[in-house]
Each structure stands twice: as structure tokens, then as C-alpha cells.
Amino acid sequence: KELVSALYDYQEKSPREVTMKKGDILTLLNSTNKDWWKVEVNGRQGFVPAAYVKKL
């Protein structure tokens, strides 16, 4: 599985998104959309802005 690192804090703005803190390591589930990537963090799945994470 592919991992990404959070470059910035992000506070979810809808139920489809997830909150992350800078430095968090997230499991990348889907990166086909260039703007929003689906990740899993702390057992929750949702979307984060692609520009806020980088692949490890």
C-alpha cells in the first residue's frame, strides 16, 4: 500500500473529508482525482486536498 505524509494541518469541512495534522502518515487509497485524494487516517476514510500531502 502507498503512504503519504501530511504537509499541513487540514480540518475537514464535510463528512466526506478527514482531518489530518502536519506530519501525519496516511494510507493513500485513491489518487485518480488531481485535486482530492482519498486516504485513511486513524481508521477513517475520506478525502484531503492533494496539494496538502506528498507521496513517501
Rank of each mutant, 00 (worst) to 15 (best):
Val48Gly: 01
Lys22Asn: 04
Lys34Phe: 08
Val41His: 14
Val39Gln: 00
Asp9Tyr: 05
Asp9Arg: 03
Pro15Arg: 10
Ser5Tyr: 15
Lys38Pro: 02
Leu28His: 00
Val18Asp: 00
Tyr52Leu: 14
Asp24Lys: 02
Val53Ile: 11
Ser14Ile: 05
Asn33Leu: 09
Tyr10Met: 01
Thr19Ala: 07
Leu29Asp: 01
Ala50Pro: 05
Tyr52Asp: 03
Leu29Gln: 03
Thr32Met: 11
Leu7Glu: 07
Ala51Gln: 12
Gln45Asn: 07
Arg16His: 14
Ile25Glu: 05
Leu56Asp: 08
Trp36Gln: 03
Ser31Met: 11
Leu29His: 06
Lys34Val: 11
Val53Ala: 03
Pro15Cys: 11
Tyr10Asp: 00
Ser5Ala: 15
Lys13Thr: 13
Lys1Tyr: 15
Asn42Trp: 06
Tyr52His: 08
Lys1Asn: 12
Glu17Trp: 03
Lys34Asn: 12
Glu2Val: 14
Pro15Gln: 11
Tyr52Val: 07
Trp36Phe: 07
Glu12Asp: 05
Ala51Phe: 09
Lys22Tyr: 06
Val4Ile: 09
Lys22Trp: 04
Ile25Ser: 05
Lys38Glu: 15
Arg16Gly: 15
Trp37Met: 04
Glu12Cys: 14
Gln11Ile: 15
Glu12Pro: 15
Gly23Val: 01
Lys1Phe: 14
Asp9Trp: 03
Gln11Met: 13
Ala6Leu: 02
Lys13Asp: 06
Thr27Met: 13
Arg16Trp: 15
Gln45Thr: 14
Ser31Asn: 10
Lys55Leu: 14
Gly23Thr: 02
Ala51Ser: 14
Leu26Arg: 00
Lys34Leu: 10
Val4Glu: 01
Asp35Tyr: 15
Glu2Gly: 10
Asp35Pro: 02
Lys21Asn: 09
Lys38Ile: 14
Ala50Cys: 07
Ser14Leu: 08
Lys54Leu: 12
Pro49Gly: 02
Pro15Gly: 10
Val4Ala: 13
Asp24Leu: 04
Val4Pro: 02
Pro49Asn: 02
Asp9Cys: 06
Ile25His: 05
Lys1Leu: 14
Lys54Trp: 08
Lys1Thr: 13
Val53Thr: 04
Leu29Ala: 02
Arg16Asn: 14
Val48His: 01
Arg16Pro: 05
Pro49Glu: 02
Lys55Gly: 07
Val53Gly: 01
Lys13Leu: 10
Ser5His: 13
Asp35Arg: 14
